[in-house]
């Protein structure tokens, strides 16, 4: 087993100087990705999932290129690409034309990413349904032990939401600063990290951009940073990545 560091303290130089995210698979579980958007620069793979009562588990999976139905998945992909320009993006579309079966489809999308060992999974969506507490908890544990980092936007509403509130995931809320490489550690969980998500210019449908605010844009900043870190240090486990982020947060480096 290799030690976390050969020598000295954790530094940003050690963590990601010269890193680009190259060789790291990053999945965006969302509304799809417009692969041709100039801020996205292509995707490595794509699968569209939808509710289908005819299927054994109620979920239909269609591999191959797809469009982004809303624009949000493309926004997340654009942010990740900006922070980790050479990562391999994978689009897992789980939001579609109707809400029916969303919990099952969302869980299947997450499972798809874990089974393929995509190292980073961006989840800028959540569910508040108590029925899905156990299912998502089991998936979050599987991801953790498989070395898959789940980066979750906190829902910002007072009631519980999954999987962002589990201890094993990277839960992210928006902070006010705009530096795409800046992030904070929150000593008052369940939210663990803060990253840009307020008035950020993001990619959207139709090759355009919008200026938008939401924790859902903070999560992909952290997903991109983790991809950079892993491209230089692929052996890191989720708890080691959390240790590194804690040590290198803006508010820990006073």
């Amino acid at each position: 087993m290799r030690p976390l560091l050969a020598d000295g303290a954790l530094t940003r130089e050690w963590a990601w100087a010269g890193a680009t995210g190259a060789g790291v698979d990053v999945a965006v579980v969302d509304s799809g990705i417009d692969a041709g958007h100039p801020m996205v620069g292509g995707v490595e793979s794509a699968v569209a999932m939808s509710y289908d009562p005819e299927e054994e588990d109620g979920v239909r999976r269609v591999e191959g290129p797809h469009e982004d139905l809303f624009g949000h998945g493309t926004a997340c992909a654009g942010i990740i690409r900006r922070v980790a320009p050479e990562c391999r993006l994978h689009s897992i579309r789980v939001l579609g034309e109707r809400l029916t079966g969303k919990g099952a489809v969302f869980a299947a999308g997450l499972e798809w990413a874990i089974e393929r060992r995509f190292r980073v999974v961006n989840l800028s969506l959540s569910t508040g349904k108590e029925d899905y507490f156990g299912r998502f908890h089991e998936l979050a544990d599987r991801a953790y032990f498989a070395g898959v980092m789940l980066v979750c936007a906190v829902s910002n509403v007072p009631s519980p939401s999954y999987p962002s509130q589990y201890a094993s995931v990277f839960s992210v809320a928006a902070h006010k600063r705009q530096d795409p490489f800046g992030f904070d550690y929150n000593p008052d969980p369940p939210v663990e990290l803060g990253a840009p998500g307020i008035d950020v210019t993001v990619a959207w449908k139709g090759d355009g951009t919008i200026v938008s605010t939401g924790n859902s844009f903070a999560a992909p900043h952290v997903a991109g940073l983790i991809a950079r870190l892993l491209s230089k240090h692929p052996e890191l486990t989720p708890f080691q990545v959390k240790t590194v982020l804690h040590a290198l947060a803006d508010n820990a480096r006073a």
Binding site: H72, V157, G214
Partner: peptide, 8 residues
Amino acid sequence: MSEQPISV
């Protein structure tokens, strides 16, 4: 769909 708030 996402159960997430947003502003544009």
